[in-house]
Simulated scan of single mutants.
Amino acid sequence: MKMLVVCGSGLGSSFMIEMNVKDVLKDLSAEGIEVEHSDLGSATSDMADLFICGKDLADAASGLGELVVLDNILDENELKEKIGDKLKEKGVL
């Protein structure tokens, strides 16, 4: 499985979220999941199985594929809950 974190203009916030996703995956003991980051303009639907973004980009990112939309990109608890729920839904956890 592959996840791609996208942000609006570059790589700053998406890189930070990528690091947090990797920490969350460790906490959840989820293995074999690749995580990368990109700007929204460069992202394509074939780049990942699951896309992660802030709510400000949800509409623009909706065409990419399955989304995890974060209300607060700095809230690691929200990230862990939403990633955990999505992985359980997919049968990964």
Rank of each mutant, 00 (worst) to 15 (best):
L70D: 03
V5Y: 02
S45G: 12
C7E: 00
G65L: 02
S14P: 04
E18N: 11
S45I: 02
M1N: 08
L25P: 11
K55W: 01
G12P: 06
E78V: 05
V92E: 11
I52A: 04
L67V: 00
S14C: 03
C7M: 05
V35M: 06
G41W: 01
K2G: 02
L70T: 03
L79G: 01
L4E: 03
G65I: 11
G63K: 14
I83M: 10
F51D: 08
S62R: 03
D46P: 02
V69L: 02
K22P: 12
A48R: 03
K80L: 08
N72C: 11
N72H: 07
M3W: 04
E66D: 13
K82P: 07
E36L: 10
L70N: 02
L57T: 08
M47L: 09
M19E: 14
D59L: 12
F15R: 08
A30K: 07
V35P: 13
A43W: 08
K80N: 04
L28Y: 08
A61D: 04
A30I: 15
E78Q: 14
S45N: 06
D23T: 11
D56E: 15
I83D: 10
N20D: 10
V69G: 04
D27T: 13
M47E: 14
V68W: 03
K82S: 05
V6R: 00
N20K: 14
K86F: 06
C53S: 00
L79S: 12
G41I: 00
K55L: 07
S29E: 15
V6M: 01
V92I: 15
A58C: 05
K80Q: 11
L64P: 02
D49T: 06
E78T: 09
G32Q: 04
N77F: 05
N20L: 11
K88E: 15
G8W: 00
K82M: 09
L4G: 00
E18W: 10
G10C: 00
M3V: 14
G8F: 00
L11Q: 07
D59H: 01
A43I: 10
A30N: 10
L40N: 03
K80I: 03
L93K: 15
F15E: 10
S38M: 05
D49Y: 04
G54A: 14
S29A: 14
K80F: 06
G65F: 12
C53H: 02
G84Q: 09
L40H: 00
V35R: 12
E76A: 07
E34V: 10
I52N: 09
E81C: 00
K2V: 03
S62T: 05
L11T: 11
K86L: 14
G8P: 04
A30Q: 06
I17G: 01
A61P: 04
I33N: 06
D27K: 15
D23W: 04
V5R: 07
K26N: 12
L50M: 11
S13P: 01
E76I: 13
V6S: 01
E81G: 06
V92F: 14
M3R: 04
G32E: 06
K22H: 08
G8Q: 02
A58E: 14
L64C: 00
L67E: 09
C53M: 05
V69T: 07
E78M: 08
L25S: 08
M19G: 13
L70F: 01
K86D: 04
F15Y: 10
V21E: 10
E89Q: 14
E34A: 13
E34S: 10
N20Y: 08
S14Q: 06
G12H: 13
A61L: 03
G8M: 07
D56Q: 12
S38R: 03
F15V: 14
